[in-house]
Simulated assay, not measured.
Amino acid sequence: MIRGSWVTAALYAAVSLRIPNLLASGPLSAEDLARATGAAPDPLRRLLRALAAHGVVAERDDGRFEKTDLSDMLREDTPGLRGLTLMYGGPVWWTSWGETLHTIQTGETAFSKVHGAELFDYMQRDPEMNALFNRVMTEGTVRLAREIVDAYDFSGFGTIVDVGGGQGWLLSTILAAAPAAHGILFDQPHVVETARPVIAERGVDARCRLVGGSFFESIPAGGDAYVLKWIIHDWDDDDATKILRNIRAVIPPAGRLLVFDRVLPERITDNDFLTRQGTLSDLNMLVNVTGRERTEAEFRQLFDAGGFTLTSARNTSSDLGIVEGAPA
């Protein structure tokens, strides 16, 4: 565990040099890759051997290196983990994690100490980080969207509002699975504009309306279901309650609130992979944003404060949390 950060640093270097893309066309030697990337041959070979030891690339008998299933997930032309590697391994995220102790001692985010602003305010002045963050959210949604529509039946809703829906991948997947439904994609104006090509490419633009705004101010009316994926966990209870109350102000009596966030266990009695992932994600929310992952009891309290009754909460086999509520 102590050396886990070294693996992240190695992955970041490889992805920054586009090694996974270069290996996609066939095996290459360290010298070939050095010429293609401008890197020094011996240090690059040592990086590649470390990555081979972790299954990211494979070293052949002739000394050349070749792709693996893991390296394919790090290519820039696939919706895998490249964006997440660049964000978590890059200097913006990396330096804030170095101030974790500050967060534990003060309750303030390490991100704000290091960068002088909370994450979402910081991204407004750093277009490169903003674009990377949006890419990471889209990549994650591409991986989960199919699972969401398999796990929850949206066919009974007439209009589905995706609150903080980013570039529209989840909503377009939902609308493809529920062909009679219409959708409203709601996010900040500059984010919504980037969704137009996705919505059009996926063939649901005739059934989907794009609305720009802030979910802290108001939420579009007219939905039967209000969806929030990876939104509520970004915010503390006060801010999360504001979002829920704004939805409560417009949702009809028979409407449904659907929150897709992890549901943490009430007590940590196991150290399985999903539990480790969930609790580390909670630390990430603590260090880098003002939010948190929540237990079912914490979701219930939050829903009550926002004007909703929690009707069900569960995790899928991949740790996707589905928390459903109805207007109280």
Rank of each mutant, 00 (worst) to 15 (best):
L228T: 06
Y226V: 05
D236A: 09
D236R: 04
I243D: 06
D234Q: 06
F260G: 05
P265A: 03
I247V: 14
L244C: 00
H233L: 12
V227H: 12
D237M: 09
L244M: 01
R245H: 10
P252A: 07
N246P: 05
D237G: 10
L228G: 09
R267V: 02
A254Q: 14
I268C: 09
E266I: 01
K242Y: 00
H233I: 05
D270L: 10
H233P: 05
V259R: 04
A249E: 08
A240N: 04
I243Y: 05
R245Q: 15
D261N: 14
A240Y: 02
D236S: 08
V250K: 12
P265R: 01
P265M: 03
I231K: 04
H233D: 15
W230R: 10
R245I: 12
T241D: 11
R262F: 01
D237N: 13
A240C: 04
R256V: 13
R245F: 11
I251K: 01
N246Q: 07
P253V: 02
R248C: 01
E266V: 01
T241F: 08
T269C: 07
W230N: 12
E266T: 05
R256W: 03
D239M: 10
V259P: 09
V227Y: 07
K242R: 14
R248E: 02
A240L: 03
L258M: 08
T269D: 14
R267P: 00
V259Y: 09
R262V: 01
V259K: 04
H233E: 15
V263C: 05
R248Y: 00
R248D: 02
I232R: 02
A254I: 02
I232E: 06
R267N: 05
V227Q: 08
D261Q: 07
V259S: 15
D261I: 01
V227A: 11
I243R: 07
F260I: 14
I247W: 02
I243M: 08
F260M: 15
K229F: 09
A240W: 00
L244P: 00
P265F: 03
I247F: 02
I231F: 06
P265S: 04
L264N: 11
R256T: 12
E266A: 13
A249F: 04
D239S: 13
K242T: 14
K242Q: 04
R256N: 00
W230S: 14
N271W: 12
R267K: 11
D236H: 04
P253E: 13
I268M: 12
D236Q: 03
A254Y: 12
K229L: 08
G255D: 05
I251W: 04
R267F: 08
